[in-house]
Amino acid sequence: MAIIVNLDVMMAKRKISAGDLAEKIGITPANLSILKNNKAKAIRFSTLEEICRVLECQPGDVLEYADGR
């Protein structure tokens, strides 16, 4: 997958646990795990919006494009 989710980095910066983040975003811990482990096929704008709101960051801080990876 060329798009990489760097949620771990932002979570470490904001010192927030996976369980807390899942609760604040309004998704299940299982879905957050799928997102964190780059298993997700797509992300809804609403989810991305919530992630950015909770982690106080921009979409570019959690998503990265890597060529040929």
Partner: peptide, 8 residues
Amino acid sequence: KAENDYTI
């Protein structure tokens, strides 16, 4: 369905 299941 797989696509939908993995859309977060």
